[in-house]
């Protein structure tokens, strides 16, 4: 999965010369939190709602006669210039790792220095929901604990195939030295599937031991 497929292409942008007020209104109207700043087509920086909030917290300056000076900030003055970016051909995993490590909310997507899109945490969550098929009617999740040996996974899938159960998604992840397989299966009669699996020697944890 590439970033290019999941990003928002042609995002709304501001220029460094725009006022912070205008940037703030854009964020409010469109209900998002990040605005790439472009000069021409080139990415110049990024401004977030946090940056804007911080400017409002600045101590107002007062002149000799005691008048409060209202200063009009420009985007160029408050934006982050040193932006971490990804390219459309980076993968979702790349973006995910960066977002997680740096605790960012969004990454501009560039080709060379040209801005082509933006990818946010929400896009990545959507990718996960689609991959795991959490949404949509007709599927239900079961968990099976397997020894760390692929042959057991094979046996599990064979068993399900034998029962003609549709597997809608399958995630295998390490768990206390074993594997736990998270499956979404397309049947209403889950109780029966679980009991057949248990009879065939698989460990299907009870709902009380639910992992997710």
């Amino acid at each position: 999965m590439y970033v290019g497929r999941r990003m928002t292409a042609k995002p709304i942008t501001v220029s460094p010369e725009d006022t912070v007020m205008r940037a703030g209104h854009l964020l409010k109207e469109n209900r998002f939190h990040h605005l790439p700043v472009v000069a021409g087509e080139e990415l110049a920086g990024i401004v977030t709602d946090t940056d804007i909030r911080n400017t409002t917290l600045e101590e107002p300056s007062v002149n000799g006669e005691g008048e409060v000076l209202v200063r009009e900030w420009k985007v160029g003055e408050i934006m982050t210039r040193d932006v971490i970016t990804v390219s459309p051909w980076d993968t979702i995993e790349d973006a995910l790792v960066i977002l997680h490590r740096k605790r960012f909310g969004a990454l501009p997507v560039v080709e060379g220095r040209k801005l082509v899109g933006i990818i946010t945490k929400t896009d990545i969550l959507a990718a996960f929901i689609d991959t795991l098929r959490i949404e949509g009617a007709g599927g239900v999740r079961i968990e099976v604990i397997l020894p760390r040996d692929v042959s057991f996974l094979l046996r599990l899938i064979r068993k399900l195939e034998e029962m003609k159960i549709e597997i809608r998604s399958l995630v295998l992840s390490p768990f206390r030295g074993e594997f736990v397989a998270f499956l979404r299966i397309g049947t209403i009669d889950v109780a029966n599937v679980k009991s057949v699996l248990r009879e065939s020697g698989f460990t299907v944890p009870a709902l009380e031991d639910f992992f997710g």
Partner: peptide, 8 residues
Amino acid sequence: PTFCFPGT
């Protein structure tokens, strides 16, 4: 829905 069909 996390525990039960149809997941909605």
